[in-house]
Design a protein around this nucleic acid. Structure first.
Lengths: 262, 262
DNA sequence: GCAAATTTGTTCGTATGTATT
DNA sequence: CAATACATACGAACAAATTTG
């Protein structure tokens, strides 16, 4: 026996899921049933199920059972457009209309405004010293009622201390978009941005908000926006669960943005 | 006790790793030692270590012990440039020079050329029927000796059956870049591309090649390149382990591409 | 609304196998 | 070959969450 028993059992169950013998949303036999089917101990069955969980096939609900995960229809965020250089996809203001275009229902939570000390990742991108005070605007975002992303934008404090962009301090949406608002209020026009895409495991807050297991994966995207002088005006950090989000980057001249096969 | 013991032990060990009390590359006490330190059974200790493994903090080596993972210096791939619309980052030909720019040593394996039946994901992007024959060019790529990515490009068969781009069939590098070669050989100029970014768990091949645990994460990026008529000339699928790869997308006008803080 | 039954979660003990030194 | 350390597997008991009667 090359492969240990728990891997064989996991593989067998995986096949039954792939072939549809165990349908999405359906329930697996209980641990005690599987224990008899496979002639193994309950712990071995549990090891097999743990494998299926971390591979993203099933979930267990205490007191209920083990269930095949439904295939989530992923949401696709476009990080770059070719036409409108300037503002891009996935951001606060454009979020609502962009999601609607994909025939899905977006919602956003209230904006939470805080003064914070910039941690190194943020400070370096905003080109301010670490632990400088910055304005933080945080928002939860949902699609069709499902938690979809967490977004936090950081702005240099001088934007508000100078008295020019004080609406950043109000805990309310800036419906025309912060890029547009900042251009009118400060004359600093957003002419470009750079996205830095990473993946990591979710922290405790993110696990709770998204309902993710501790060993799942989230995308973390740092967007640094620059004004016409090449000075960063803003850093936006957005966290997306990897199981329900995908991204598109368009470069050069392209045919119409058909959302074709996945 | 709200939290179960194995989570508390994992959390305690995690803190010791975060504070540097357990240094990167260093060895944890053996399971039997930890069993005494924490007054728990060996199974409970193992549950705690499993948590640390799936959170990416440690690895176990049978017969040796449990070790704190060294922080990998991630490689950053730029998916879009503002200047040169056309060819972009992370691709076959430009790979070697691009990696060298980051003061790291790139290597590539031999090109493996195959005729394949296009699976649906590929066929839809190339706009050919599923199971149509396509040319597949596959290559392994390394940085500083570490397996870094697996890349497979798919080309419509007509490019070679028409006798115009027969070098695609040769199992050798096309040093000037396939985009340049195809333009000369067929007159089809690459004027843009679209990247589709997803994350998933690695398959068995990928686990073996990259040395990844079965529950880790890889990025999978589908790049569809288009010619001046808006027709796809190529689909390139690249798989990157998420623990050692990050991506940048540039949009609009930007200051010099300083590779600043992470 | 409560008690019982069901199902998964945690913890222990033990034995044996496999990889490395 | 022996010692060490992790991997697999079994059995058992009790806890916690949920559903059922």
């Amino acid at each position: 026996m090359a492969e240990p028993m728990y891997k064989q059992i996991a593989e067998d169950l995986r096949k039954k899921i792939e072939t549809g013998e165990l349908a999405p949303g359906g329930q697996l036999p209980t641990e005690l049933d599987l224990r008899e089917s496979y002639n193994a101990s309950r712990n071995t069955i549990r090891d097999a199920i743990k494998r299926l969980i971390s591979s993203g096939y099933v979930e267990t609900r205490p007191g209920q059972g083990t269930f095949v995960l439904r295939n989530i229809d992923p949401f696709v965020t476009t990080l770059s457009r070719d036409k409108d250089s300037g503002l891009g996809g996935g951001e606060g203001a454009s979020y609502l209309s962009e999601v609607s275009k994909q025939h899905r229902t977006p919602e956003v939570g209230p904006v939470r405004v805080e003064m914070q000390l910039a941690r190194p990742e943020i400070a370096a991108r905003l080109r301010v010293p670490t632990d400088t005070q910055v304005v933080s605007r945080h928002q939860e975002r949902f699609i069709d009622g499902t938690p979809w992303s967490l977004q936090t934008s950081f702005y240099p404090m001088e934007l508000v201390t100078s008295g020019r962009a004080t609406r950043l301090l109000l805990a309310e949406d800036i419906t025309e978009g912060t890029a547009t608002y900042l251009e009118g209020a400060t004359g600093r026009k957003q002419v470009g941005y750079r996205d830095w895409i990473t993946a990591r495991t979710p922290d405790e807050n993110e696990q709770k908000f998204f309902g993710l297991p501790h060993d799942s994966t989230v995308f973390e995207i740092f967007r640094t926006a620059f004004d016409q002088s090449g000075v960063p005006t803003r850093v936006t950090v957005t966290v997306f669960p990897a199981d329900r989000n995908q991204f598109i980057v368009n470069v050069g001249t392209l045919p119409d943005p058909e959302y074709d096969a996945r």
